[in-house]
Structure formats: structure tokens, C-alpha cells
Amino acid sequence: MLPGFGYARPRNLREAVHLLSAPGARVQAGGTDLLGCLRDGVFGVDTVVSLSGVPDLRGIRRALDGGLVVGAMTTLSEVAAPTDVVKGYPTLAQGAAAAASPQLRNQGTIGGNICQRPRCWYFRGDFHCARKGGEKCFAAEGENQFHCIFGGDVCFIVHPSDTAPALVALEAVVRITGPNGSRSVPAEKFFILPETDYTRENVLTAGEIVTEIVLPPQPAGTRGTYRKVRARGSWDFALAGAAVVATITAGKVERARIVLSGVAPTPWRVPDAERAIVGRRLNKRTVRDAAAAALKGAQTMSGNAYKVELLRGTVEEALLALA
């Protein structure tokens, strides 16, 4: 049984923002991460504010510039379904399809997926770790085989989302509404590292919610893919992954964005790897160079050194898939 809480289902965004301004209120999208956190006692809640009654937040529509606007309450199944997302943004559709299990994809939303809390077993377990306001990260000297090799500082989580790296690779924009109005943040700047604030994973402040994801139109010749490696094939979080979006003209890479999952506290963009393929053809040699560049700066801990070689293969495979 979950601990007791109140519940409100507002009918529009304004009401939702108002209800969320109350202390102890938390937003629920699909609920699959929220209920898990409440059950594990990761945090408490006085009032669950459900967005399921706000109709404007769900669905995918064409933007005026030819891009797509995906409502935050659109389910992962809907994002992965064979529609406009698959056609124009395969990286995102593959990321959504690679997340969780069929049931969770039917329940979980894209907004919730990018805002989900980390899966670190100390964070989820009965440990007062740094991310929960405690004094230390237990993974640093403990069991850390699923922890980060980039961007760790005080806390060493990996970001659990499979759609987030795709959104960063696609140069998506996250639209946010809160008590002080609305704002837009590039997906790349939405996620924050522990060095900025090790108690949260994104820029959302109290009472703010993600309302939409804006996908810009992609230049002709743009291809994309998301490669995810996990401990078991059916469903699991990424051990390592790579979201790639590349524009290829006359056989050569004109522009590319490579963003890693499962290896850092945020989706981890690797500009050096992108530079390694721009102006070149994708083949075994260039792909090897890019993967080597992607690994630069990796810092392993006692249990996660395997991620370096795993990541090398993952990046190579993702890039070769676009060749």
C-alpha cells in the first residue's frame, strides 16, 4: 500500500500550475515512475496533481515550420507508433520503442520519460544519498556497475531515459509552463549535471511542468538511429546507448549529432566524435575514429570499466547503421 496522499485532476493547464504551487504537491503524468518512487519512499507527496484530465497536453501535431510538436502527455507507444515520428524522426521513435515494456510504454508519457528520476539502487533504496540531500554518494565506493563514466561529480547516476538522448540529438526544444509563465529550453540545456545541482536532473523549478516537445524540421538527407545495449534483450535500462542524427549528402556526412545514453548523469553529447565523421564517408575506419573520440575523458569506477568497450562497440554499430 502506498503512503496516503491527496489527489487532484485539473481540467486545464492553468489550474494544474495553480495546484502544483502548493507545498508538497507533485505532478503525475503516466504515473509509472511517480508511483515507484512513492512505493520505495524516495520522496513523499501531499497531493498528486494528475495531468490526465488536461486534454491539450496529449497528441502529436505538425508545426508551422514543418516540424512536429509532441504533447508531454503523449504515451511512449504513441511516439513509437508508425506515424510522422517514425517517418521524420526515427531516432526518437526508436528511443521510445526501446524504453521499458509494452505495458509501461502504454502508460508512460514522453514528458514523464524525460523527467523520470534516476534508477541508482542507492537513490531508490534506503540510503540517504547526496541526491536525496545526504552527504555522500554510496555508489562511489560501493556497487557501481550501472553508474556513469562521464560527468560524475558528488553523484554518479546515469540518466535513465532513452528518449532524452534522441531529443538532444534532434535539437528538440522543451516547452515548460510554471507559476511565472512559459519558457522554452533546448533539450541539450534541459538536463543538468551534478556539478550544477546534484539533487535534480533538469532545469525545472518548483511548480513547473513540461508541456510540449518541439521537433524542428530536418534537412533533406537526414538519417537517424538509436542503438541501445542492455543486460537482457526483453526490457531493461541502457548499459550504453547512442542516439545519432546525421545529414548525409553525396555520400559524405555534412552534419552530425551523437548523444550517448547510459553512461552519464545527462544525455551525453560527444562533439569530438561528431567532428570525426563530418566531411567524411561513414565506413569502418571513420566509425572507429568517431568511437575512439567518443570515449575520450571516460573515468571508470571499480565496477563499470566494461562500459568503455561496450560503448565503443555501441557507437560503431549505431554509425554503421547509417552508412
Partner: peptide, 27 residues
């Protein structure tokens, strides 16, 4: 499991499979 992992509680919601353990009844 009561944590959205095993599927024993699967029901259909409008014909689509969901985990009943990860959904509030009010929803």
C-alpha cells in the same frame, strides 16, 4: 512485484495492456 516489472497484474484499459499496480484507481 507491485512495481511495474512482472506483468501479473496486466489488465486492458480501453483495449490496451497496462499494469494495474502502477495506476491509481481514480485514474
Amino acid at each position: 512485484c507491485e512495481r511495474g516489472e512482472c506483468g501479473a497484474c496486466t489488465v486492458l484499459l480501453d483495449g490496451t495492456p497496462v499494469y494495474a499496480c502502477m495506476m491509481l484507481a481514480l485514474e
